[in-house]
């Protein structure tokens, strides 16, 4: 009964927070509500016995997405700070051309499609969990989630890494405002970032290693590294000249690149894309997860930075 009440409270709280975040006219308030929504969502995943997704939701869904949204808001304010053209004719015209109800049409179609899919699912299904358990021995790891993500359906993870990279390419090609030179961060933020960075690195390494037999893995570890990058960027740290071109790009593509190479090699050796032999599976997964962690961390921090990082000498 108590558990049921807790779950009901959680579900209603999620719906209420989502509604408040969507309806808030104040963008800052909407972002804060969105972060609160993400944290509550992580709790919901814990209640659903999915600690891997809970970790990812808390770190990426609430933490880093929140940081990205706040960074976007700060740039919006910066970009429109000295423009007095809020009600300009062009904007009024745009308002007339796009009625506000228009986005509701595709949205309703998506809701109808999703609803149809959910309702057409069989009420009870075992899914593929028995097959995963049966083949766990040969996967090289003992955490079923990692086995699925890095072995049985490795190409999903490969494509996720590519999506992340493409997102960064999109941000770079928009050529937006990069994070400017901040004013001095003050002694507290400076000390905090110096003290926490080693802790972040340690936690990321721990999450990466523990992913083989418990909740954790490349995405959680990478998001912790990304958070370290965000904190350092906020504390005024910038890419050192000479590191922004080739070295940064190598780190960014290391994860997807290693994945593609392993995929090609396994295709030549075993005849099947990303099919590892059971003896090598463990070491291959560790290799892929390590490179993916670095890439995910660098990509998330670079997304937060915004525009394409440039050497300082081009500015001065």
């Amino acid at each position: 009964m108590l558990q049921w009440a807790l779950d009901a409270l959680l579900g209603l709280g999620l719906l209420w927070l989502a509604w408040c975040a969507l309806m808030s006219p104040n963008l800052l308030k909407a972002i804060v509500l969105f972060v609160a929504f993400g944290l509550l969502m992580a709790l919901a995943w814990v209640r659903l016995d999915a600690p891997d997704i809970a970790l990812a939701e808390a770190a990426i869904g609430a933490g880093l997405t929140g940081a990205l949204l706040l960074a976007a808001l700060a740039r919006l304010r910066f970009a429109y700070a000295d423009e007095e053209t809020v009600g300009s004719p062009a904007q009024e015209e745009a308002k007339v051309r796009f009625p506000q109800w228009l986005p509701a049409v595709p949205l309703l179609l998506v809701v109808a499609g999703l609803g149809y899919v959910v309702l057409s699912l069989p009420p009870y299904a075992t899914g593929l969990s028995t097959e995963v358990t049966a083949n766990l021995e040969s996967s090289g790891v003992s955490n079923p989630v990692t086995a699925v993500l890095l072995n049985f359906r490795g190409y999903d993870t490969l494509l996720e890494l590519v999506v992340l990279l493409v997102a960064l390419l999109g941000v770079w090609s928009l050529d937006g405002l990069a994070l400017g030179r901040e004013t001095a961060p003050g002694p507290v933020l400076d000390t905090l970032s110096r003290f926490l960075t080693p802790v972040f690195i340690l936690v990321a390494a721990y999450l990466l290693w523990v992913g083989a037999h418990a909740p954790g893995g490349a995405f959680q570890a990478g998001s912790v590294l990304g958070a370290a990058g965000v904190l350092l960027l906020l504390a005024g740290w910038r890419f050192r000249a000479g590191l922004t071109e080739l070295p940064l790009r190598l780190v960014l593509v290391a994860g997807p690149g290693a994945f593609v190479i392993v995929a090609l090699v396994t295709m030549l050796m075993e005849g099947q894309l990303l099919e590892y032999s059971p003896e090598q599976a463990s070491i291959l997964i560790l290799f892929l997860e390590t490179t993916a962690t670095f890439s995910i961390g660098a990509t998330l921090a670079a997304l937060f930075f915004g525009g394409r990082p440039q050497d300082d000498k081009e500015h001065t």
Partner: peptide
Amino acid sequence: VLVLLAGASVAHLVAR
């Protein structure tokens, strides 16, 4: 310990 550290620092930053 981490929450203590983050809480105290963030409180200082917000107040500043």
